[in-house]
Simulated assay, not measured.
Amino acid sequence: MDSIIFDLDGTLWNSIGTVAIAWNEVIKKSNYVEREVTERAFEQTMGLPFQEIAQKLFPELDEQKQKQILAECCEVENTYLEKHGGNLYPQVEETLKELSKKYKLYIVSNCQAGYIEAFYNYHKLDAHFIDFENPGRTGLSKGENIKLIMKRNKLKSPVYVGDTQGDFQAAQYAGIPFVYASYGFGEVEAPDYTIGTFQELKELF
């Protein structure tokens, strides 16, 4: 193993509280969404592609309106996250520091452009990572973005760490082992490895 590629939401941090505030600020100003989005509703969309998130959160809107409100919310969300951050899981910074001494670290997340940068800017963790990717920049699926990171950085034997079935399927698509972060948002059947806390990665690798 030469590298570790991480999911972000449900793996490195939980940003739902901050994201909910940002989205509901946008919703209050809109004239076509009549209800706020709850944190529970956000939890049920973790790891999904943008279009599926819009369909789940705003099923009453047509596709054009879904795309419009999603774009507006994501733009404000990045600003909020850069100012207020999210909740890092316990021992994330310390564990990343240790892992980066042995392995090359990366992030691939199903998020908009600017989201990972907001994570970096608030929590000052960018020094531990070499590269990152997301569909907001590439328009690709998570599995395709994992393969892109592998190709771009000439990785020979990475693993992917995530918390949802979609993450597992993305790792399978990329042909690499999957580490299930069971403390996150999703459930995964038959992962290659399972961790109950982030710091267990130090024992696993």
Rank of each mutant, 00 (worst) to 15 (best):
K147T: 13
C73H: 02
N87D: 12
R35Q: 13
A181M: 14
N134T: 11
A170Q: 11
Q112I: 07
V33T: 05
W23T: 07
I69Y: 02
G166M: 14
A113Q: 15
H84Y: 15
K142N: 08
T45F: 06
S182V: 00
K151W: 02
S109M: 06
P90E: 05
S100H: 15
N87P: 00
E94H: 04
Q51I: 15
I5F: 08
V179M: 05
T138V: 07
F198M: 09
D192F: 08
F58S: 11
K102G: 01
F50Q: 10
E77G: 02
L88G: 01
L81E: 10
V108P: 05
K147Q: 14
E63F: 03
V179W: 06
A20D: 03
N145D: 15
F119D: 07
G166Q: 13
Y183N: 09
Y160L: 08
K104H: 12
Q51G: 01
P158K: 06
S15L: 00
K147F: 00
C73Q: 12
Y120H: 14
I5E: 09
H128A: 08
K65N: 13
G114Q: 11
P59K: 13
I4C: 12
I149L: 14
V19H: 06
P135S: 04
V19Q: 03
T11Q: 09
K104W: 10
C111L: 04
S141A: 11
D131S: 04
A127W: 01
V33W: 13
G85W: 04
L8G: 06
F129M: 05
E75W: 07
Y80M: 04
L148E: 10
V188C: 05
K202E: 14
N145S: 02
Y80V: 07
L125T: 10
L96S: 07
E72R: 09
F129L: 11
N87R: 04
F6Q: 06
K28H: 01
W13V: 12
Y106R: 13
P49W: 03
W13M: 15
R40Y: 08
T95E: 11
G114F: 11
F198A: 09
E75R: 13
I176N: 03
G196Q: 12
I176E: 03
D62G: 09
G86W: 04
V108N: 03
L96C: 12
E144I: 03
K28Y: 02
D131Y: 02
Y103S: 09
V92P: 12
N145R: 02
A118M: 00
E52N: 11
I107T: 13
Y103E: 15
D131I: 06
G114A: 09
F205N: 08
E200L: 08
A174Q: 04
